[in-house]
């Protein structure tokens, strides 16, 4: 697999390590009333879709940026690559 890094162009997937579903960006509010429940779901439950999947990859042996990669889990085709920083900021996170 090749990942089209937004800053560096096509890079071999071997340069990256994989974390998992991009929903891990959306860490729940630890002070909320239902924090115990939402953290359980956040930490342990996964959509695990067969098809399009947004996921976090870390460019470990490259520029050490986190990416949100949209990839089809049936075909391994990658359709979109974004900097995780941009995705997080677009959702209102400070970094």
């Amino acid at each position: 697999m090749m990942i089209d890094h937004p800053l560096l162009g096509l890079r071999d997937a071997q340069e990256f390590t994989y974390l998992g579903d991009a929903s891990l960006i959306d860490r729940p509010d630890w002070q909320a009333e239902d924090a115990q429940e939402t953290f359980h779901d956040y930490l342990y439950l996964r959509e695990n879709p067969a098809g399009e999947h947004r996921e976090l990859w870390f460019h470990e042996t490259g520029d050490r940026s986190w990416l949100v990669v949209t990839r089809n889990t049936l075909t391994h085709e990658i359709t979109k690559v974004e900097l995780a920083r941009d995705v997080a900021r677009a959702r209102g996170r400070s970094k």
Partner: peptide, 18 residues
């Protein structure tokens, strides 16, 4: 490996990745 796909049809999310 198809657990999440099948159980999703019953509305369940599982602590699994394939």
């Amino acid at each position: 490996g198809s657990s999440s796909r099948v159980m999703e049809k019953a509305g369940l999310r599982l602590p699994l990745e394939s």
